[in-house]
């Protein structure tokens, strides 16, 4: 069985600081990590490999530094890593991104057919959750998003059964391979990197593909050119016409402050008082 896992390198949001004056994000020194949601998908892929045998290839599109994220995935147990990198990809929106990744997966499949593709549920930077469905559509794979559990995989029948999170419950879905799965967060826990795999990762050869090597002919469909969405402006959220009414009291006693604010609340928003009382009655 051959599984491809798409991963994205993202800035570690826990380390991001916002410039207090300009309100822009200070990127310097922010470490890059594997998109946390992708690790649930990678772990699920590795578990399937443990049970059914086969190989796991990790794939990313990004700048040359993204190689580090791929090595991290090899240290967890991925067999092979491919970095698709080319200046022509810069500025891609999700439509252009799924076009490039789908082409690369097709290329990967030329050597060994791909049975399963995994994507993360979403990233923590672009945060759109659109790339997975996009890749599935382009490769005509059955799409299984928000999967909380893979119940069963029958390689002989090429059948897979999963549980998928819906809004008010869980759908149990049955489909055939090849398919694309995005895993829900918290559904498994990433294994520790073994000593062997850490050594392997350090030495692993990450294959680097440019546009042509990834099998992309049509430059009009990648990068900025291939992106229908355009960012027209970046702005600070509207200041409300009115800032908060600050509660001033003669004493600094918490009780006085509480009495003042509750008094204002219940006179200026009289309905709220009645509503609360009714609910609690």
């Amino acid at each position: 069985m051959h599984i491809v896992v798409c991963i994205k390198q993202v800035p570690d949001s826990a380390q991001i600081r916002v410039h207090p004056v300009t309100n822009t994000i200070m990127r310097q020194g922010v470490p890059a990590i594997v998109n946390p949601y992708d690790l649930f998908s990678l772990e699920e892929a590795l578990r399937l490999k443990d049970r059914f045998g086969g190989r796991v290839t990790v794939l990313t599109m990004g700048p040359p530094q993204a190689e580090a994220a791929l090595r991290k995935c090899v240290s967890f147990g991925a067999d092979e890593a491919i970095l698709v990198t080319d200046r022509a990809f810069a500025g891609a929106d999700t439509l252009a991104t799924s076009y490039a990744l789908a082409a690369a997966i097709r290329k990967i499949g030329e050597n060994e057919a791909v049975d399963l593709v995994f994507c993360g549920k979403q990233t923590i930077d672009g945060d759109t959750a659109q790339v997975g469905p996009g890749i599935a559509k382009r490769l005509e794979l059955q799409l299984l998003t928000y999967v909380s559990q893979v119940d069963d995989l029958d390689l002989a029948q090429r059948a897979i059964r999963v549980q998928r999170r819906a809004e008010g419950g869980v759908q149990v879905l049955q489909t055939t391979l090849p398919c694309l799965i995005t895993m829900l967060e918290g559904t498994n826990e990433m294994r520790f990197a073994s000593m062997d795999n850490m050594f392997r990762a350090a030495r692993a050869e990450v294959r680097v593909w440019n546009r042509e090597q990834a099998g992309i002919e049509d430059v009009a469909r990648i990068g900025l050119k291939g992106s229908p969405t355009v960012v027209s402006k970046v702005f600070a959220p509207k200041a409300k016409e009115q800032k908060a009414e600050m509660i001033e009291t003669e004493s600094d006693q918490p009780r006085d402050i509480a009495l003042t604010v509750v008094g204002k609340l219940f006179t200026q928003h009289a309905k709220l008082r009645g509503g609360l009382a009714k609910k609690l009655a």
């Binding site: 439509l95 659109q130 229908p228």
Partner: peptide, 23 residues
């Protein structure tokens, strides 16, 4: 932008080859 809407929107936008703005 629900589990159903996001699943569907991404597939439809790709089929139609148009832009989709999330959330």
């Amino acid at each position: 932008a629900t589990t159903q809407g996001r699943d569907l929107a991404g597939s439809v936008a790709t089929t139609l080859q148009t832009g989709l703005t999330a959330d």
